[in-house]
Design a protein around this nucleic acid. Structure first.
Lengths: 200, 200
DNA sequence: TGTACATCAGTGAACGCGCGTTCACTGATGTAC
DNA sequence: TGTACATCAGTGAACGCGCGTTCACTGATGTAC
């Protein structure tokens, strides 16, 4: 009895986990693509585009590097798609006000997170990158600014937009500087002062 | 007569330009180190650390790659030293007020310059880099903030420091975003709004 | 000041490694009957 | 529903290239006499 159950368990484990060198269903392939994109979005933000190899991304997704070109045209293509994933994740974050948004964005947790805001972790690299990559962050930025505009105080639309754009620049700059700085006191001070500047 | 003058000119040109495979005086070697550092400081800001090879830096300095390891221990060592050069150059820039400083810093000329501010062009890479590289930008940042504090308006030292830190974060963030964005109108808008925020 | 020689900055070929990318192969998927 | 077969997602070895780095060599520098 125990032997039979054990054998069934082994078969189930084999069927559900063993990729082997086999084809995979369309549903599973779409899942794999999502796994690759999530791994890439995290690893690129953690180590930069040149600090992560295609093989590392595929391993993190539980696949081998050879399958990569069935999903993407090139590493550059992956970069653009992974940025879309990262930007999409950011858009999911909501807050009641700019001050509340800044309080989360400028927290030590966010600063120390492996996969922080793409603009602060990859911005200077994307600025030198392909039109596709820049386009993704441009579109994402437009949406982020629009979201902040709604939350911004101010009588006129003009005043709210002014506040949204400068608040976002302050947040990205402060987070970037706090990550560069090799001095915990100064790093925290930068976050706190920016938070104070954007509060209420 | 013409032939004699021509020969003398050729000799002078040969003596002053031809490095050949020869040793070089201590003075000339120090000049060469400065040429390497200036080339590296410019090229790294233009293309990122991984976008520039040791050979390219040496060529830009008018030398061959083999001479590199007589000047620096490794590419990482060059990166730290080149950042010092870049930060030192920034410290040379002066302005009467934060508004005046921001007006220069947030100009289209600075945005489009090949060798822009190291914090905006290399910040996200340095954040993941060696303690040496981070230390250089940390020290440079402390000096930049101190300089801005002197120019900042405000009754108390606390208020001036608050203004200096947040103004610098806004400037770096706005320049970074304006360089990422692939849309001239939005890019200019970011610069202009940040300038307005920091004016007067 | 002139001569002999050790030093060492710069040269350019070479090395080894790891990267992005390719490809022959495998075997489950999914379709046609 | 069952069977036969074409498709194609994933595997893993292999390729070629360019990078950082090393090294034997060259010959001007700079010093000792």
């Amino acid at each position: 009895m125990m032997n039979v159950m054990f054998a069934i368990m082994m078969i189930i484990m084999y069927m559900s986990s063993h990729g082997g060198s086999m084809k995979v269903s369309k549903v599973k392939m779409a899942e794999n693509r999502a796994l690759i994109l999530n791994a890439a979005a995290r690893l690129f933000r953690e180590r930069g585009f040149d600090g992560v190899t295609v093989s590392e991304v595929m391993s993190a997704a539980g696949l081998t590097h050879g399958a990569f070109y069935g999903h993407f045209e090139s590493k550059e293509d992956l970069i653009a798609c992974a940025l879309e994933t990262a930007v999409h994740d950011m858009a999911a974050h909501t807050a009641d006000s700019i001050g509340a948004y800044a309080s989360d964005y400028l927290s030590k947790e966010h600063r120390d997170a492996a996969a922080g805001c793409a603009y602060a972790t990859l911005g200077s690299e994307v600025a030198r990158s392909t039109p596709e990559a820049r386009g993704v962050l441009t579109d994402g930025l437009k949406k982020l600014i629009a979201t902040l505009e709604e939350k911004a105080p101010g009588r006129s639309a003009e005043a709210r937009r002014q506040k949204a754009v400068t608040a976002w620049a302050t947040m990205v700059g402060a987070l970037l500087l706090s990550r560069v700085v090799d001095d915990e006191a100064l790093s925290s001070e930068i976050l706190e002062r920016a938070k104070q500047d954007l509060a209420g």
